[in-house]
Structure formats: C-alpha cells, structure tokens
Amino acid sequence: MDELRRWVPYCGEAPGPEIWLSRWNVDPVLGAVLLLLALALWRVSVGQDVTPRRLLSLRCAWALTVVLYVSPLCALSSAFFTVRVIHHLALVLVMAPLLVFGLEPWLRRLPTPLWSATAIAAMVFWTWHAPAPYAAALSSDLIYALMQFTLLASAMGFWIAVRRSGPTAAMGAILVTTVLMGLLGALITFAARPLYAPHFASTLSWGVSPLQDQQLAGITMWAPGSIAYLAVAMWIGWRWLDAERARGLRADPA
C-alpha cells in the first residue's frame, strides 16, 4: 500500500526533472519568520556580545535556511532520499555550528555535558533515519517540523559541548560521532531492498531506482558526512598541538 501512496511532504510533492527548478517553497509562515529575522539581523549593532564574526555567522545561517527550505532544493529533497540526507547533514554540520558560534553569548548557561550531548545527538539522528519515523515526518508537517527542530537542537547541543570541552574529550566525542555516522551510512548503503516508502516511486521519473537513490544516500552519509566530522577532530588536534608547541617555545626561549 505504501508503494502506491501519494506522498506530499512539507516541501511539496516530489517534482520531475522538467519542473523542479521552478518549485520554490512559498510557505507564508516561513516567509514571515525569515523576513522578521532578516530585519533583526539588519538592525542589530555590533557591540560587546555581537562581534562582526558572530553577526556574519548568523547571516550565513539565515542564508542557508533560505537554501534548505525555500529554494528548489527543498522540493528536490521530496524526490530523492540522497538530497534529504544532504539537507540533514547541512543542518547538523553547517547550520548548527553557525548558530552556536553566532549565539554563543546567549547560550553560555545551557548545561551541555559532552557525552550526554553526544549520545542525544546520535540517537536523534539515527531515529529520524529509521524508515518508520522518516515516513511519518514526510506524512505530516508537524512531525516534519519536529524532525528538523530536534536534528538542529541536538546538533547545537553537541557543538556547544564540544566547544566547552578540552581537546582530548572533544576529539573523542567527535570520533565516536564519526563512527556512528559511518555505521548508519553503511547500514543504509548495504540494505538489500529500498527502506524508505516516500521514495519508492519519487525517483523513477529521473531514471533512478529507489535502491540506487538509497545507496547513494548511504554513501553520502558514510563518506562525506564522516569525513567532515573527522576533519573537525583533526583541526582541533592540530590547534592543540600548535598551542602546546608555542607554550614549549615560551617556556624554553633558548
């Protein structure tokens, strides 16, 4: 029955290749929220808490929101599970860090134990990529909003905790997340049959089978997703070693 169902997720019915570039999301509620945020970001003054870099980070997050939820990429995510995975990776790997950095002065008092935040972020990501919760999110705008909010909020909690932790603990949490991301991607890639009912028919007009789309989505999660986390861990390690080297030079100027 699910194979024959007409899925109409928040971003609209899955488009074909001939119309997808014209499929902009014109949700008036989202448009009003984005307009208000744009006005707020335009009027905000650079001061003690709002540095130019923080303001730029918030403006980039606003622009990414437009790309993810207004542009034709939103509609394309209704057609391809791969694009949905890219959408979710953008949320947790780009949007969340941008917001954490931009809003850091207002997030200081949030309790974010590192390993609890790591476990919650992983659990949320795995849950929404299980077939049943994923199908539910593409059946209801309310559940879809819950999916987007929990993915973003849990990722923000993770990156806040990483920023507050020492380099060893931060790298450990990121490496655990890398392994879990890779494992989920591998499970999706090597599944013997299509698992995601909303895409059983949505890719066919593009000449792509649902299993091919699913395999590409799994590889995207497995390779680029894991590599992105690994790159952050390496960057933290490099900064840590560089700081230790500089400290050693100061202690022994000769």
Rank of each mutant, 00 (worst) to 15 (best):
D2C: 04
F81G: 00
A153S: 09
H199S: 02
T51M: 01
I143A: 15
S205I: 12
G185P: 06
T178R: 09
I219P: 03
L187D: 09
L93V: 02
L41R: 06
Y69N: 14
L204Y: 02
A233C: 14
V29K: 08
P72M: 06
L89Y: 10
R6W: 07
S205H: 08
Q215E: 10
W126M: 07
A96S: 09
S45L: 15
T177M: 15
L114W: 09
D27Y: 04
V46D: 02
C60Y: 13
P133F: 00
L89I: 09
I227T: 09
V8P: 00
W126T: 08
P131S: 00
V46N: 00
M1L: 13
V85I: 12
A145R: 08
L142F: 12
A32V: 14
L58Y: 06
L93P: 03
I160S: 08
M181S: 14
L68N: 03
S78Y: 09
R109C: 03
L175T: 14
A96M: 07
M147I: 01
L93S: 11
L35H: 13
L4N: 15
Y229D: 11
R54F: 09
V66T: 02
W128I: 01
Y229W: 15
L93C: 11
L4R: 15
R59L: 13
V94H: 12
S165M: 07
C11S: 10
W106F: 05
L91W: 13
Q48K: 13
L35T: 15
P111R: 12
L64W: 09
Y69Q: 13
M171A: 03
F101R: 10
V26A: 11
L36S: 14
M123G: 14
L37I: 10
W222D: 05
L249Y: 10
G182A: 13
L98T: 08
L68M: 08
S205P: 01
V83K: 03
Y69R: 10
S116D: 12
R23S: 06
S140I: 08
S226W: 05
Y229C: 13
D213N: 06
G182K: 10
C11N: 02
M181V: 14
G102S: 08
L55K: 11
V232D: 06
S116Q: 15
L37H: 08
A40G: 14
A170N: 07
F81S: 00
L230S: 12
